[in-house]
């Protein structure tokens, strides 16, 4: 599943929810947590439930960010949205593997009661505490529903007692740790949003840094950021051409019975082939291949 961009939309704003899937993001995140005032939580979850039920986005994946486990809200969030089958649930402030198991068990109860297939909705944990970062592997491997790890930089820096900067030195360790933990479980990792809506150069730089560290995509908080982040996380034409050449060279080598194959003077080994296949898979999805 390609998730280059994941666009946050406030869960209590109808004008944004109903237009979410025309904004070009690969995934949209209906936010029931920080973007919703405490006394509007009930309204937001009913609105999000109805949007899923009657106006479900068809052009992109839907993710619901639910409230943290130390609140009274998360169970009610799940009760409303799970029967409408969102693609993923994003538990805020995931701190350990047990948090994921608790959410997954409750999701299963609701799925059973609703008569839908247990396990049909995945979990994308939002790691945004120092404890969560240190337990990233435990979180990623906690349950088969886990579809990746998502880093939240704002809450994390508050927890780290440091200032969030555009350069992001303060979250470098967390970024690397999240990517390693996710990849160790065969999953993707997704980066925290760049929060300055006006600074497009800063957005490009921050997205390029995230991609260079191994993230597969990045959250955005403004529709204006979607196109730029999509571009950074998409393979460049020369990458696609090189991937095609790699695959062709491998096939030609097989036809000729060669054990070792080289391209442009360099040996092609297994990691290069794997990377080429990943790029061609992304290209296929970008060209409108199967969405799921």
């Amino acid at each position: 599943m390609m998730r280059r961009t994941m666009l946050f939309l406030p869960g209590n704003a109808p004008n944004m929810l109903i237009n979410g899937d025309v904004l070009g993001a690969d995934s949209i995140i209906f936010d029931l947590e920080d973007a919703v005032a405490p006394d509007e939580k009930d309204a937001a979850r009913i609105l999000v439930r109805n949007t899923l039920k009657y106006q479900k986005p068809t052009a992109c994946e839907t993710i619901i960010r639910i409230n943290p486990l130390d609140t009274q809200e998360w169970r009610a969030d799940l009760e409303e949205v799970i029967p409408c089958r969102p693609d993923l649930i994003m538990p805020a402030k995931a701190g350990c593997g047990q948090d994921i198991k608790v959410v997954a068990d409750y999701m299963a109860q609701i799925e059973e009661q609703a008569g839908i297939q247990v396990g049909s909705t995945g979990i994308l944990p939002l790691v945004e505490t120092v404890l969560g970062v240190e337990k990233a592997f435990e979180i990623a491997s906690a349950h088969r529903r886990v579809a990746g790890l998502f880093l939240g930089g704002e809450d994390l820096t508050a927890d780290l007692h440091c200032k969030r900067t555009k350069e992001g030195q303060e979250i470098f360790y967390a970024r690397s740790r999240i990517v390693c933990a996710a990849r160790a479980c065969g999953l993707d990792a997704y980066d925290t949003p760049f929060t300055d809506v006006e600074d497009m150069q800063g957005l490009v730089k921050d997205s390029q840094l995230a991609r260079s560290l191994g993230f597969s995509g990045k959250a955005v908080i403004s529709p204006r950021h979607v196109e730029t982040v999509n571009a950074v996380f998409s393979p460049a034409p020369e990458e696609i051409q090189y991937a095609r050449d790699v695959v062709e060279a491998i096939e030609e080598g097989k036809r000729q019975g060669k054990g070792a194959v080289s391209l442009r003077g360099k040996m092609i080994d297994a990691p290069i082939v794997k990377r080429a296949m990943q790029i061609l898979d992304m290209e296929r999805q970008m060209m409108g291949g199967d969405f799921q």
């Binding site: 109903i18 009930d42 009913i46 609105l47 949007t51 039920k53 009657y54 106006q55």
Partner: peptide, 14 residues
Amino acid sequence: LDCVIRARMETAIR
């Protein structure tokens, strides 16, 4: 939209 009217009506009634 219809789904929004339904949601707001339900919220107000609840």
